[in-house]
Amino acid sequence: MKRIKKRVRRWMTEQMDLPADVMMDLPRITMIGNFHIYIENHKGVIRFTREELRLRLTEGELLVSGNAFVIKNILPEEILLEGEIQDVRFIKK
């Protein structure tokens, strides 16, 4: 059932030209240079240190690594991270 739903969504996204992040509940990541990263549609912080930020997503996790991280702002579905970003990686469960 879940799989069907997902398939329908994917199909709709492809056919109707709708933004993928809305339709499929995917994170939308915006980076400004390497010192600001803005992540929407996250599901909570798993780990936060000076060198890494691990966020829960609908599916899997997002790992941002770098130096001197500060969470400038955090809201239920958004997060703004400041620091020297070196790597953004999706981790599948």
Binding site: G44, V45, R47, F48, F69, V70, I71, K72, I74, L75
Partner: peptide, 20 residues
């Protein structure tokens, strides 16, 4: 402590400038 941050967000408490 990340758990506390998540709880804050869930209960709509504004929280910013988080540093480790």
């Amino acid at each position: 402590p990340e758990l506390f941050v998540n709880r804050c967000i869930d209960s709509d408490i504004q929280i910013w400038d988080i540093e480790h």
